[in-house]
């Protein structure tokens, strides 16, 4: 396939590079290739890790004498040339978010930075359908595309030691959700009561690469009610 390059990340990993542009067509191709490799793995295949413009394929370089880098690349090339047409429509996951100040320590800063009211921040954040390009950073953490540029805000100069699980944030022109407690420098504009991790289920994450996602606002009461419901 044209415009695709192959780079050996190490002895048992090839990074397939689809160029420098982040867009949904490229992402679709990457996720399709990942799926084909998982469904019809070559001998020695371990796993494929998608990112914005790359797919990295891990394999065992020892088993079988023919597992050379060039051989693997030509196999992948063959898969790529014969990708099935994908006409399945993406799942849309709706995520409730409480934008109340109690759970949104940085929403006023995001509003101020962009000359907006808090209400406008919520409006702009909830009116978009986002795309889950891939998961990374931590289990279930979605890299989303589609943030309204009017909301773009630099990371905090002093990262927080602990950001609570479910926190919804903005960093530069990205928005995302922290599935578990972790340190981080994103501007926190809300929190979802929905759990993004479901370890005992298959798949173990609520979101999958390729999903669509939309946020809808809930009140502080609804959020706390939701939390209580989780415990019943």
């Amino acid at each position: 396939m044209k415009d695709v390059t192959y780079f050996p990340l190490h002895e048992g990993a090839v990074m397939i590079d689809f160029g420098k542009t982040i867009n949904r067509e490229t992402n679709k191709k990457i996720l399709q290739l990942a799926k084909v490799l998982k469904d019809q793995p070559f001998h020695g295949f371990i796993e494929a890790v998608p990112a914005y413009t790359t797919l990295t394929v891990y394999y065992d370089p020892i088993i079988g004498e023919s597992q050379s880098f060039t051989k693997i690349c030509s196999w992948i090339e063959n898969y790529l040339d014969n990708l099935p047409l994908d006409d399945t429509s993406a799942n849309t996951i709706n995520i409730p978010v409480c934008y109340d100040l109690a759970y949104a320590p940085d929403i006023e800063e995001v509003a101020r930075t962009n000359n907006l009211t808090v209400k406008q921040v919520v409006k702009y954040h909830t009116e978009i359908i986002y795309h889950v390009y891939f998961l990374g950073f931590s289990p279930g953490f979605p890299f989303l595309g589609g943030l309204n540029p009017k909301l773009a805000t630099p990371r905090k100069s002093n990262p927080r030691i602990k950001i609570n699980a479910g926190s919804v944030g903005i960093a530069g022109n990205q928005t995302g959700i922290y599935p578990s407690d972790s340190p981080g420098g994103w501007q926190i504009i809300g929190r979802t009561p929905k759990s993004l991790l479901q370890i005992e289920k298959n798949p173990p994450t609520l979101l999958q690469p390729g999903d669509n996602l939309s946020f809808y606002a809930i009140s502080k009461d609804e959020f706390e009610q939701w939390e209580e419901n989780q415990w019943v």
Partner: peptide, 10 residues
């Protein structure tokens, strides 16, 4: 843990 990196697991 192999096979779960694409979901963000180390």
């Amino acid at each position: 843990r192999k096979g779960y990196q694409s979901l963000g697991f180390s």
